[in-house]
Design a protein around this nucleic acid. Structure first.
Lengths: 213, 213
DNA sequence: GCCAACTGATAATACCCATTTCCAGATTGG
DNA sequence: CCAATCTGGAAATGGGTATTATCAGTTGGC
């Protein structure tokens, strides 16, 4: 994926005070940031490689230095967005370390929807742009979702354990939560967070319901 | 959308024993059938207008006689698939007219997943191909889903009434059920129908839960 | 200061496909 | 039988964009 910066030495040299690797990493980051902003603005489907490069202040040449193709950047952008969201949820749960599981669950959901509202571009990438692009994107999306499901379940039920039969349920719950978020966002996040959390809660209860396990 | 068969008379004449309108309707149907088969086989994204026409035994000229563009055909194919599925669910519910609501709900779910397994092409169109194409397709998809939600809710709870707040929940439930179906199908429908229904049931209970309304 | 490694910008190159148009032959009504 | 209407097939047109290659100028090691 990453063409080493130069061909002969394989190392390159410093430039603008940065080593070859630093410069390349910097460009990669700029591309990811630009991707989130652009996908969030006009959607992945409508943005070209050239669009992202323009926003990043780079040229297509540098795009292919860091990413094999457009999809690879989408996946990278999604991973970045997911990483931030997971951190936020963990923080919300930690802040209520001694509270009831149900309260912690509510706190996480609340943090999640708040984050979506505060970062519209990231939100769009997260809830709306990862569907129907390709098998690779679908796979990356499912992996990200399952991380969320696991976090939600573990935090709200300390004795929760992963089982195979639970995988289907996890998938269903996460896509349900996503659809709720998508619909809420499509309506410009007009409904209060508390209302959205109330709608989302019963779905999470499915996740941690032991009777049905 | 439908260019009248001829330009001068506006009516056309019989040909091959069929009137102008009959021939056109026939071609339209063939295109829809071919679309379901082809989308089901290789996915909407990878099928070209020419592909569908080839399968239908027609030429692109006739495609544009009945559909404005590729998306319009996808929507028409989806509507056809949805129509059949809704009929099947209604029939399953009717067969248990006097049973408990919960039993009727189970029967509908069972009929639904059975249908998906029996018609893989239609299933793929229904659960996997309608995401991320365009706003028009998204809209058609949501309309179809809400019909299902309404049917499920009404049949399992005779006194069910539609409310605005319920819309979000309905969306979440339906997308949850869809994700379950998608995942099951991706695994070649290996799990027994009864297991899938068991996973799906709690989602439906959210739909008709009055406490949370 | 010199050469090779960098940089940004532009512009080929190449492919894919929707949509339209053309054509030669088949079919009909009168 | 004849002219108009229809048919299937194939090819022309046109737009869009991913991906690569080129180039003139800049920068850094030595």
């Amino acid at each position: 994926m990453a063409n080493a910066a130069t061909s002969k030495t394989g190392q390159g040299r410093t430039y603008g005070g940065q080593s070859s690797g630093e410069r390349q990493a910097d460009r990669r980051e700029r591309l990811i940031r630009a991707a989130i902003a652009t996908y969030g603005e006009q959607g992945y489907r409508r943005t070209t490689v050239a669009d992202v490069c323009r926003t990043a202040g780079l040229t297509p040449r540098y795009f292919y230095e860091s990413f094999a193709n457009s999809e690879a950047l989408l996946i990278a952008a999604y991973k970045e967005v997911t990483r931030i969201a997971l951190d936020t949820l963990r923080a919300a749960a930690s802040a209520l370390e001694d509270a009831e599981p149900e309260a912690r669950l509510e706190a996480m959901l609340s943090a999640y929807y708040t984050l979506l509202r505060e970062r519209p571009a990231s939100a769009r990438v997260f809830v709306a742009e990862m569907s129907g692009i390709s098998a690779a994107v679908d796979a990356a999306f499912e992996i990200g979702l399952s991380k969320f499901a696991k976090l939600l379940a573990q935090t709200s039920d300390p004795e929760w354990c992963e089982t195979d039969e639970g995988a289907l349920r996890k998938t269903g719950v996460m896509h349900g939560l996503l659809a709720i978020a998508r619909s809420w966002i499509a309506d410009e996040c007009k409904a209060p967070i508390a209302d959205i959390v109330a709608v989302a809660l019963p779905f999470c209860r499915i996740l941690i319901d032991r009777d049905a396990r």
